[in-house]
């Protein structure tokens, strides 16, 4: 018997965690539990990112998703968590349909995942020989417009993509700004109005 290849071991570990908690999110009825499961699932996914050599993205995942987005979500949960919303039942019929469709979707996706022989992984020697580089610097350079990973590209057609992601980065920045402004506007504290008034001035309210 050959020795255990630890990255593979961790892969199975993390994927098991993330998959099972994803299923947990799906099956949980309580919204608070869902949020908790989601945190774990996403954290395990971050682990998978690390394993795949995407350390920076993994870190971002942990920070932004697990640290930021989810905290936001949990705030949302707490703000809206009244007794009657914590557990809301879905009808059995919808469950069955959803599970059937989901099963089919999963079947198709799994089938696709297994379809390409080249995706089945390298042999162990090659994998151990592969050098894992830190990606933070190349990513930062990429966002600033320089693709350090492709500087020595000889192929003319590929070199076209060397301009990096500066422009995209800018757009995303602006987009983020707009979105945050919008979110702040939408969620601004308003005087809570009664239903009658809402009905009467429905068009003005928005």
């Amino acid at each position: 018997m050959e020795s255990i290849y630890w990255p593979t071991f961790f892969f199975w570990l993390f994927s098991l965690i993330s998959c099972s908690f994803a299923v947990g999110v799906l099956l949980a009825r309580n919204i608070v539990r869902m949020a908790f499961y989601l945190v774990l699932a996403l954290a395990a996914t971050a682990g998978l990112f690390f394993l795949a050599g995407a350390d920076f993205v993994g870190a971002m995942q942990l920070m932004i998703y697990v640290g930021g987005t989810l905290v936001l979500l949990i705030f949302g949960v707490m703000l809206t968590s009244q007794e009657r919303f914590i557990e809301m039942k879905t009808s059995s019929g919808e469950w069955v349909v959803a599970l059937l469709l989901g099963g089919m979707l999963l079947g198709i996706l799994l089938q696709a995942a297994m379809a390409v022989p080249a995706w089945q992984g390298m042999d162990r020697a090659a994998a151990e020989a592969t050098k894992v580089e830190k990606t933070a610097t190349p990513l930062g350079m990429g966002l600033l417009g320089v693709r350090v990973d492709q500087l020595d590209e000889q192929d003319e057609s590929r070199r076209k993509g060397m301009s990096g992601y500066l422009f995209h980065f800018e757009i995303v920045s602006v987009h983020l700004l707009v979105v945050l402004v919008g979110a702040a506007y939408l969620a601004r504290a308003k005087r809570k109005r009664g239903r009658d008034e809402l009905a009467g001035t429905g068009s003005n309210a928005t």
């Binding site: 009808s91 059995s92 019929g93 919808e94 469950w95 069955v96 349909v97």
Partner: peptide, 17 residues
């Protein structure tokens, strides 16, 4: 789940489909 544990109600299922 449906017929032993009664997690889902067959009658309700029948209605929804």
């Amino acid at each position: 789940a449906i017929y032993l544990w009664k997690l889902l109600d067959p009658q309700e299922l029948k209605q929804s489909f």
